[in-house]
């Protein structure tokens, strides 16, 4: 089975992100990065597919040299090949998808996996766009996947429940958390990853379809209010929720 997984290098969930001086991008100083968590589930699923069906897993990441850290991590988890599409300039989702689709097309994989979204810009568009560009079926927000002889049966998360869909390979999938429990890279894996080569390619520039004009942090939450401390506070709280906050 020929498998491709696309992985993004995103600010660590514990990093406090600040808006940069230009008011439309983040300030990268002091920011730690990590493999985007949904992508981690995608990698795990691809490794399991390989372990079950044989074949190889190729990981692709678009970004600067810093993304090599994430590619080394997926090497340590067990992927067979890593490609860096080297482009330091910011791209919109369309630009990212176009660059990835160009390479993926050449690899003609059976399975293409993404995380359902990157936890940096949260566009949740790239998987679907790539599927469209390649003319492949796309199944998003996957929580369970069975593939048998090219026949796919996948469970997707939908509002309030699950939906089961069927399709055939080749196909594009995006992973939801809970699809699996991603493995830790082992120390030996990390050691071996040191000497594995990362192939670098330069993607074609793509004119942006969407331009970021401003970025700001959400306004800080105001302090809470204590309505009272005994039973009488309950009616007052209900009244406030109803009349003032208008949530019930």
């Amino acid at each position: 089975m020929n498998i491709v997984v696309c992985v993004n290098h995103v600010p660590d969930t514990e990093t406090k992100v600040k808006v940069g001086p230009d008011g439309k991008s983040i300030d990268k100083a002091g920011v730690n990065y990590m493999l985007s968590p949904y992508d981690e589930s995608a990698v795990e699923e691809c490794l399991r597919l390989k372990e079950k069906n044989g074949g190889q897993v190729t990981a692709i990441s678009l970004g600067g040299d810093a993304n090599k850290e994430t590619l080394r991590k997926v090497y340590a988890m067990g992927v067979d090949k890593a490609i860096l599409l080297k482009d330091e300039a910011p791209r919109d989702s369309y630009g990212v998808a176009k660059a990835l689709a160009d390479v993926i097309k050449e690899l003609s994989p059976d399975v293409v996996f993404f995380g359902k979204q990157s936890i940096d810009y949260d566009d949740a568009q790239v998987g679907g766009l790539v599927a469209e560009m390649l003319g492949l079926p796309s199944v998003s927000v996957v929580v369970k996947l069975e593939i048998d002889n090219g026949n796919v049966r996948a469970q997707r998360e939908i509002e309030g429940g699950h939906e089961t869909v069927e399709t055939r390979l080749p196909a594009v999938f995006t992973a939801q958390k809970g699809l699996n429990e991603p493995r830790y890279p082992s120390l030996r894996g990390i050691m071996q990853a040191k000497s594995k080569a990362i192939e670098e390619r330069v993607p074609e520039p793509v004119p942006p379809q969407v331009e970021v004009v401003a970025m700001r942090k959400p306004t800080a939450k105001g302090a809470g209010r204590i309505v009272g401390t005994d039973a009488s506070a309950v009616t007052e709280l209900v009244r406030l929720l109803h009349e003032e906050a208008k949530v019930i």
């Binding site: 990590m34 090599k68 850290e69 080394r72 991590k73 340590a76 830790y184 890279p185 120390l187 990390i190 050691m191 990853a193 040191k194």
Partner: peptide, 14 residues
């Protein structure tokens, strides 16, 4: 080194 960082994040996650 990058390797030390990876080792650190593995040990921390674990």
């Amino acid at each position: 080194t990058d390797t030390m960082k990876m080792v650190q994040s593995l040990a921390r996650d674990f």
